[in-house]
Design a protein around this nucleic acid. Structure first.
Length: 916
RNA sequence: GCCCAGAUGGCGGAAUUGGUAGACGCGUCAGACUCAAAAUCUGGUUCUCGCAAGGGAGUGCAGGUUCGAUUCCUGUUCUGGGCACCA
């Protein structure tokens, strides 16, 4: 009887399926535990070996929790809306619904291969009307709500309207415009359109205008990563910024709660820090500077009002509206040229740029205290979206300001004396201020407050808490997403009624963008005739609340029954990649808070504990396109051209040599590609980077499962290293894990002798082996160290083999501990041990400590910190005994060289160190 | 540019609280079984000097704290990730 993994795995997968072994009920006497994976976007390339890493880890944990007596919810589904399916439709004319369905089926087959314990009766797909009906419903909840700053929670807009009718907006500062003020009478006298426009500035889901990457040649809006060096990835056409009407979520109202909420969740410190940096809370002041010889003022935001006497110039963002008004005639051409240059650049390029660029407007601001004239410059390093889009530059204290001043020969005022060396800026807060009028002699840290107060007293500014976080853009000019349930009448947006949901996505044949940058829905006559919104929701809409739908996936009355969400509550363990650290996690935290505020659920943080799985690295292949052409140059010759690098599918590359014919067929854009070869070959560049569909460097798990079995594959993925850590994929080592399972099998059945397991009573030594292993396995899994669990299992099998132990009582414990990792082999052997029930129903073994008690230990003995020998000592040896024995030791004597020791350090159970 | 993470043998990694660096596995070398191969088993395998016994060095790099540092501190280099329309 040998280890026939493929027969065993098929047999048990069928059995578990037929017996609904993984079905979970919403009622139970057992304590609940919710284990969730970040669900996949079903890409056309299928699952690669990087995807299941987290799924396997969470599956192991879910199975382990079940063995520990929990009612475990462990669902899976698909984040099925998204850009790639739409791009595929544009390239191949296949409807996204069709390709998505096909991709999901591929994913499902691949997942089933690996033997997960998902309750598939709870599967969800974000692109199905039965699901997105509720995504739209939640959107309406947000649309029909505002954030009450007094109560610090979301409330229905009816409350707001009632307040407006009673007292105007005195109690409710408008988040979009804090200057806005009206009385009850004024409110009532406004037209419906005016009222709706005001309400829009309060809603949690609102419509506004924002800049997008607009590509005229493609007639469409592009994602940041579809833009390379200011041209489109497809076709290499110019891309410029364009203002478009957009939907937004007013996530900024939740900034403080998103920040403080981090204190009550178990995320890694690194991840919390990423989120708080994203939120970017800063304390500072807005200060108005008069502009010389005009009536205009320039408002800047600064976190360092204490440096106001060190301001040597102003910098405004190239988008700043004052530029047109203040630029002098002689500077106009230079300014226009510079603005045209900036328009071609992405925000990321602008922030990353090391080269200093800028232009002088010709205008001067006036320092409100010193009355000094300050030149106003324009530079791309100041972003329009942050603060007021203008800064006061203090070169002696800010590195970027200092470099700018050097580059443009602007004289630098030193307000911190010796703390500034003239060579580089010093951003300290601890220097003593000089040349600073009323701040002279003060430590900067204290002067911040004094300056802020003075600014407020003088009526030229106010203290201001700023957030780097901006409201989340919530619309896409695309087809394959949730339709936004809104109608436009007379230029006002009206929400659909709940009864009109779902607003289903119409079937279309052409995926071309609509007129003026609108989405494809603008080309659908019936859609436009109903005055429906033509934007769709972004990729993160469906994923912002999916963890709730799994609890109650078939409910047609509500998104999730309150009783059910009260039972399951928060996700106890959430596993997924760090790439979602800020986007998805912040959005779903915000949605959860809003749903909580409105009373739909009973908790305001979705995920109690989060584990970030590392990425499995892939080995990518690159080709080099000569800029603005369709000519591709081989790796060794690329330096002779100006090129853009493009990833190419590793499957059409042999080693590093590109199959040029296959390349031409891979995309319509490449059909007419030409090549510059070296030695008759096109050689690709290589790069180790994450394994991802976008890099075309995926390795498929199916082949490995076919060859070694799911159990081997599962264990090998875990054995690669810590789940949280990034690591390169290498198939080589998988043999070792496969050998382990065969070795385990031989404890039960021998190739020659057949059955070797017995019902004999184990010895103390054998108990010790198994309990030592169980203890390690349990400790390691609790801290999510699954690679060391696998090695623990290996050590256990090695030791049992050496001890020739094949006793049923020992082997059963081993199988239970193994079952989360290698469920099929464990179940087969479990039944071969003549167990009637499934190993899934077993209980995790309790460790009997009495077998683990040791009386002595081999201590390392070091002299001056270097280990020289070891000594076997009783564990309750005293300091005196140890000193005597250590000094009597030959090796210690040798290293003492006749000298007497200064001190002998003895740490019980650890080590002995003789200090000379 | 800003933010985050990481760096240990030929390779993936282990060392949980500052206490025997290299568990476990891959690869590799030698041997057993075999007509042979596969499979399996046994033993060696950080580098270096040495016939050996036994030394010396060693956790990216440079310092520091300590009886003792992969672990703590300061500085630094490199690699990977995120930066708002990829998901």
């Amino acid at each position: 009887m040998e280890y026939n993994f493929s027969a065993i795995e098929k047999k048990w997968q069928k059995h578990w399926n037929e017996t609904k072994a993984y079905q979970v009920k919403n009622e139970s006497d057992k304590p609940k535990y919710y284990v969730l994976d970040m669900f996949p976007y079903p890409s056309g390339s299928g699952l690669h070996v990087g995807h299941p890493l987290g799924y396997i880890a969470s599956d192991i944990f879910a199975r382990y929790k079940r063995l520990k007596g929990f009612n475990v919810l462990h669902p899976m589904g698909y984040d099925a809306f998204g850009l790639p399916a739409e791009q595929y439709a544009i390239d191949h004319g296949i409807h996204p619904a069709v390709s998505t369905e096909k991709n999901i089926n591929t994913y499902r087959n691949q997942l089933d291969n690996i033997g997960f314990s998902f309750d598939w009766d709870r599967e969800i797909r974000t692109c199905e009307p039965g699901y997105y009906k509720w995504t739209q419903w939640i959107f309406l909840q947000l649309f029909n709500s505002y954030y009450d700053r007094n109560e610090k929670k979301a409330k229905p807009v009816q409350h707001l309207i009632a307040a407006f009718e009673k007292e105007g907006n005195q109690q409710h500062v408008c988040p979009a415009n804090n200057q806005l003020s009206f009385t009850a009478g004024e409110w009532k006298s406004k037209s419906e359109k005016e009222q709706l426009s005001i309400l829009m500035d309060y809603r949690l889901a609102y419509c506004g205008y924002g800049e997008v990457n607009w590509c005229e040649a493609l007639g469409t809006v592009l994602a940041n990563d579809e833009v390379i060096n200011g041209v489109s990835e497809r076709g290499g056409f110019p891309v410029v910024k364009k203002k478009l009407r957009q939907w937004y979520l007013r996530i900024t109202e939740y900034a403080d709660r998103l920040l403080t909420g981090l204190e009550k969740v178990d995320f890694s410190e690194a991840l919390k820090e990423m989120q708080s940096n994203w939120i970017g809370k800063s304390y500072g002041a807005e200060v108005d500077f008069a502009i010389n010889e005009t009536q205009e003022t320039l408002r800047v935001y600064t976190t360092r009002p204490d440096t106001i006497f060190g301001v040597d110039f102003m910098v405004v963002a190239p988008e700043h509206e004052l530029i047109a008004k203040i630029t002098t005639a002689e500077q106009k051409t230079a300014v226009d040229d510079y603005i045209a240059y900036v328009k071609s650049r992405s925000e990321r390029e602008r922030m990353a740029e090391k080269k200093i660029t800028g232009v002088f407007t010709g205008a001067y601001a006036v320092n409100p205290f010193s009355k000094k004239l300050i030149p106003i410059w324009i530079s791309e390093y100041v972003l329009a979206g942050y603060g007021t889009g203008a800064i006061m530059a203090v070169p002696c204290g800010d590195e970027r300001d200092f470099k700018f001043a050097q580059h443009f020969d602007i004289p630098v005022t030193n307000i911190i004396g010796d703390a500034f060396n003239g060579e580089e800026a010093n951003p300290t807060k601890d220097a003593v201020l000089q040349q600073s009028d009323f701040l002279n002699g003060m430590v900067m840290r204290d002067a911040i407050e004094v300056a802020a107060q003075k600014i407020e007293d003088a009526g030229i500014g106010t203290r201001k808490v700023n957030f780097k976080m901006r409201d989340a853009a919530f619309s896409r000019q695309r087809y394959w997403g949730e339709p936004i349930p809104v109608k436009w009448k007379n230029g006002s947006a009206y929400a659909l009624n709940e009864s009109e949901l779902p607003l289903t996505l119409p079937h279309i044949e052409s995926y071309k963008p609509g007129p003026e940058g609108e989405g494809p829905l603008a080309n659908v006559p019936e859609w436009v005739a109903q005055e429906l919104e033509t934007n769709t929701m972004p990729g993160y809409a469906g994923s912002s609340w999916y963890f709730l739908r799994y609890m109650d996936p078939h409910n047609n009355e509500t998104f999730c029954d309150r009783k059910v969400s009260d039972y399951w509550g928060q996700v106890d363990l959430y596993v997924g990649g760090t790439e979602h650290a800020v986007g998805h996690l912040l959005y779903s935290r915000m949605w959860t808070k809003a749903l909580f505020d409105l009373g739909h659920i009973g908790f305001d943080e979705p995920y109690k504990r989060l584990v970030n799985q590392g990425k499995i690295g892939g080995d990518s292949r690159l080709v080099y396109r000569v800029r603005g052409t369709n000519e591709f140059v081989s790796f060794g010759l690329k330096e002779q051209y100006e090129t853009d690098e493009i990833h190419v599918d590793v499957n059409i590359v042999r080693g590093t040599e590109l199959d040029t014919e296959a390349f031409k067929k891979s995309k319509p854009d490449f059909a007419n590609a030409t090549f510059v070869l070296e030695d008759g070959k096109y050689i690709c560049g290589t790069r180790l980077e994450k394994m991802s569909k976008r890099y075309f460097n995926v390795v498929n798990p199916d082949d490995l499962v076919a060859r070694y079995g799911a159990d081997t594959f599962r264990m090998y993925e875990m054995f690669l290293g810590p789940v949280e850590q990034d690591k390169p994929w290498d198939t080589k080592g998988i043999e070792g894990v496969h050998r382990f399972l065969k070795k385990l099998w031989r404890l039960f059945y021998d190739e020659q002798k057949g059955k070797v397991w017995t019902n004999e009573t184990p010895t103390d030594q054998e108990y010790k082996i198994i309990y030592k292993a169980i203890k390690k396995i349990e400790e390691d899994i609790e801290r999510f160290s699954l690679n060391t669990v696998v090695s623990g299992l290996m050590v256990c099998v090695n030791e049992l083999t050496d001890a020739k132990c094949s006793k049923k009582e020992i082997l059963e414990k081993l199988l239970i501990a193994l079952s989360p990792y290698a469920p099929h082999a464990a179940e087969e052997l479990w039944s071969l041990l003549e167990n009637k029930s499934s190993v899934l129903e077993a209980s995790f073994p309790e460790v009997e400590e009495k077998y683990l008690i040791e009386s002595e230990k081999e201590y390392p003995v070091s002299v001056n910190g270097k280990t020289r020998t070891t000594m076997m000592l009783s564990l309750d040896a005293t300091q005196e005994e140890v000193e005597k024995l250590a000094l009597a030791n030959d090796v210690v004597q040798k290293w003492l060289e006749g000298k007497s020791p200064k001190k002998i350090i003895y740490v019980k159970g650890r080590m002995i160190n003789v200090v000379v």
